[in-house]
Design a protein around this nucleic acid. Structure first.
Lengths: 113, 113
DNA sequence: CAGCATCCCGGCAGATACTG
DNA sequence: CAGTATCTGCCGGGATGCTG
């Protein structure tokens, strides 16, 4: 499992995006905010993710040191993973504040055509 | 061009990640921070991106209302796009602060094996 | 229930060559 | 120089079925 990181164009944020590039990465991290959760429970909490993909996602986050497994096989955020939450939240706040504007921009282009 | 947005697992940050999901999206946005830039110039500034992919990237950002084209065909951030910069920067700061820890975690797993 | 092995499908990114 | 058309390789995500 190799998570090739890119160091292009002195855009430091790219590292973070590479770590969370896959579809379910941010949602999984988010779902682990409130503490350790086991596979089945986590699957329900996320919703719409297959068992295979959830395993892949968690393994990748684990490999990158953002998630760990406790003794009983439950998944939880590592201290490192927790440090990412505020930045993730900043994006969430942006989405809540400006999500509508994005949709409007999209609609604008589709109706003009 | 359809940019399907996901609304899963009440993770608001997902919207932002969907908008910047493609490889060169964050870097492109970042490269436009300092003002309008034309295609060729932008291509050099980003580095390593093909002309085709740059066009696709810029078109997509334009479609989502984050980037606009001025009269002379130069690309620039829209006001909406600018609002995203602080959150992007938050991720960048995180990467600078914790990037090493990620690499250590990766090395740890690869050497243990 | 957790995890792994397959197979399939679709889309992204790269390379190339061509048009205004 | 900007943009497009085409082809190709690759990988992520979904579905299914099987093992402890």
């Amino acid at each position: 499992m190799t998570t090739e990181l890119s160091f292009l164009a002195d855009c430091p944020a790219r590292l973070a995006f590479d770590l969370l590039a896959h579809t379910w990465d941010p949602v999984t991290l988010w779902a682990l905010r409130s503490g350790p959760v086991r596979h089945g429970q986590l699957r329900v909490r996320i919703g719409g993710i297959s068992a295979k993909v959830l395993t892949e996602t968690v393994r990748r986050l684990e490999f990158n040191g953002l998630v760990a497994r406790d003794a009983r096989g439950a998944y939880e955020l590592t201290p490192l993973g927790r440090t990412l939450l505020p930045a993730l939240d900043a994006l969430g706040v942006w989405a809540v504040d400006h999500g509508d504007a994005v949709l409007e921009a999209q609609d604008g282009h589709t109706s003009e055509r």
